Simulated scan of single mutants.
Amino acid sequence: MHTLEIKNINKTYKKGTVKALDDFSVTLTPGVYGLLGPNGAGKSTLMNIITDNLNSDKGEVLYDGESIKKLCKDYRSVLGYMPQQQGLYDDFTLNRFLWYMAALKGLNKKEAKEKIASLLDTVNLTDAAHKNSVDFQVV
């Protein structure tokens, strides 16, 4: 079973005067997770550290026990992340968006179809996504 371990992550801004993350640790196993909290709680900072878009001041992120810094593209190939703001996709339906993301990840048609079906099933949207009358928008 794959694990994503976030160990003792610290991140400050404004020359150390504003703490975004203070010794944050968690181990994640396969599943669907959400981050909840008020503005400024460190959610986006944490996601940017997990996706290796931002360096932490202290701590590390491990995928299956290996540092994501050492894994590089091998880590990014298994990573899926949808940022809060994605203004480029305003007119995409759910299915169009998922197929687009599959193409960006380099999945062939068979793999994409299987992964999209699995994801829709996981979030209970399988039936709704196949009805022509329902047009999901990515917001």
Rank of each mutant, 00 (worst) to 15 (best):
S25A: 07
K109V: 02
T12L: 04
L104N: 06
G65C: 13
G16W: 07
V123H: 02
T27M: 13
G87F: 08
F97A: 13
K131Y: 01
T45Y: 06
D74A: 08
S44A: 00
L88P: 01
K110E: 12
K43N: 08
T17Y: 01
L62H: 06
L98A: 14
L36K: 08
N48G: 14
D127A: 10
L119P: 01
E114S: 08
D127N: 11
F92M: 14
S67R: 02
L104K: 06
H130F: 08
K43V: 05
V138C: 04
V32P: 01
G42W: 10
K15I: 01
D135M: 09
T27P: 08
N39V: 11
N39M: 12
Y100C: 06
K70A: 06
Y63P: 09
I49Y: 03
S25L: 08
Y89I: 06
L120I: 04
V26D: 01
D52I: 05
L21M: 14
D57Y: 07
S133G: 02
V32F: 10
P38C: 05
T51N: 07
D22Q: 13
H2P: 12
L94H: 11
I9V: 04
L54Q: 14
Q137F: 09
S44F: 00
V26F: 03
F136V: 11
Y13H: 12
A103C: 07
D121P: 00
I6R: 02
L104Q: 07
H2N: 12
K105W: 01
K115G: 03
Q85Y: 15
R96I: 10
M1K: 04
V78K: 12
T51E: 10
D57P: 06
F24N: 08
Y33C: 07
H2G: 04
V138S: 06
P30A: 05
Y63K: 14
D91Q: 11
T12G: 01
V26E: 08
M82A: 13
N53G: 04
N53W: 04
S133K: 02
L98K: 13
F92L: 09
N53R: 11
V18K: 14
D74F: 09
L54F: 05
M47S: 09
Y100I: 12
F97I: 11
N8R: 03
K115Y: 03
S133Y: 01
V26I: 12
K113G: 04
E60D: 13
A129L: 06
D74V: 06
P38Y: 06
I68S: 02
V134M: 14
R96E: 15
K58E: 09
K109E: 11
S133D: 05
L94G: 15
G34A: 14
G59R: 07
N39R: 10
K131G: 00
S25W: 06
K113Q: 13
R76L: 12
N55R: 10
L79E: 05
Y81R: 09
I50F: 01
D52Y: 10
K7S: 03
K110T: 09
G16V: 01
Y13V: 07
V26W: 00
